[in-house]
Write a protein that binds this DNA or RNA. Structure first.
Lengths: 240, 240
DNA sequence: CAAACCAATCTGGTTAACCAATTTAAGAAA
DNA sequence: TTTCTTAAATTGGTTAACCAGATTGGTTTG
């Protein structure tokens, strides 16, 4: 599907090559945590790519916490140790695009936890926001309109109420891909949306009552269709 | 939180302002999924910032799956719906840096799952890699050297064997911060590393035997210190 | 009238020159 | 020799000009 004529190289391909080169460089020069990488200009010359490419690759590694670049000073190797860095760079290079099954599996794992945490930690403000999202969802469903987005926003509101910023971030990362896949494969049938209102309301009520176990159970019930999709169907490809 | 004299604005601050502006623009112009954003040049002029800043902000939103930029064509709004996008942009702006507790909490959640999946899905090649990481860890410990990195690499090898690319990615994202915090707060005492070898070995063996429940139990035992660190009060998640 | 064509224009990507903060080391002062 | 000063070199960040491919709108052609 992704067949590409080799004349034009993919952007990610160039980046991975740069990251691979950086990995070799660090290994070859025995650079240790805290050490300074060669300047962006030297790297671009050495690797034969543009400086912007170098900058993008560095930004990516900065995102993963492997490098730290300081203005007017240089790019430094983070304080995580040479061995860990070597291993992580290899992992990053090996990373593949997530398949739908992997996304759903992760979503279920995250949400069964966030809903429990939300029940334990939610503030009054959190409750208001969750309720608002719930009402917006119900209204769309009652008008027989598509409500996939409102559905997800309800779940994101719960993630926010969990008080765990890492899980909140991860939910944000996977949500758009979940949405596009849902709409592509029509996972959410509109006929089941009415049941969805009831289920959402029960989840909300459990959070209001600060009952984490019940909240988790209700979420699990809500996910029964997803479970089927995740484990009883064939793997669904995902380009991009 | 970083205290900064307002003369020099943080990079992330500028980016958030740009994202906020883009959010308003989309809302004001009623842009819908599939629509084209104004060109980078126009945006930079309209917002009064450099084009590189615009590009970085767009790249960030591209990472979250909200925008898609096509070469020589334009930057488009992803197919996730206006409401979802509006909510997600708000969430992204609201994102704070993860605290250590949040990181540990998420790590425990992820690893109790990845170790089960690894026990179910591991290939022979996976076993070799996990064993290699285990041996490297044991050797360091036996030499009474610091083995935090090898420890984490063992866990990353398990994440790889889980066959879930999303969880693997998430483990990679949180690992460097975990390492730096570990070394900062000396969470891992060297006296407990010898026990660590035994625990790692048991986890490995459970994966070899394809016993997911046992693998999970052993991992839980391995995390008992982390639990203490994360929850001074009891509030330990049980299933999944 | 519709389809085909083509050139002007617009796009994200790339390149190179430039900027200000930082680092450096050579030299002056003690 | 040691310490302080200072100016040149180096750095990541910024800017603007440029590139090749895509888009667009008007013109030609059947």
């Amino acid at each position: 599907m992704k067949l590409e004529i080799p004349t034009k190289r993919e952007n990610v391909e160039i980046q991975n090559e740069i990251i691979s080169n950086i990995k070799e460089l660090i290994s070859y020069k025995n650079l240790e945590p805290g050490d300074k990488l060669p300047s962006e200009r030297k790297l671009s010359e050495k690797f034969g790519v543009s400086r912007s490419n170098i900058r993008e690759a560095i930004q990516k590694l900065e995102f993963y916490g492997i490098l730290i670049s300081k203005p007017q000073s240089g790019t430094f190797i983070a304080d995580i140790g040479a061995i860990a860095m070597e291993g992580m760079l290899g992992d990053i290079l090996r990373l593949e695009n997530p398949d739908f099954k992997s996304l759903v599996e992760t979503r279920i794992l995250l949400e069964l936890k966030t809903v429990k945490l939300a029940a334990l930690r939610r503030t009054e403000e959190d409750l208001v926001q969750i309720k608002t999202a719930l009402d917006a969802y119900a209204e769309k469903v009652n008008n027989k309109e598509d409500a996939v987005q409102e559905d997800l926003l309800f779940h994101l509101a719960i993630a926010r109420a969990s008080g765990n910023s890492t899980m909140n971030t991860f939910m944000l990362i996977i949500t758009p891909e979940i949405i596009t896949n849902f709409e592509k494969y029509h996972v959410c049938d509109t006929s089941q949306s009415f049941i969805g209102i009831q289920e959402h309301t029960e989840i909300y009520q459990a959070i209001v009552d600060q009952n984490p176990q019940l909240a988790r159970e209700k979420m699990k019930v809500h996910f029964r269709i997803l479970y089927q999709y995740c484990y009883h169907t064939k793997e669904v490809g995902n380009e991009n």
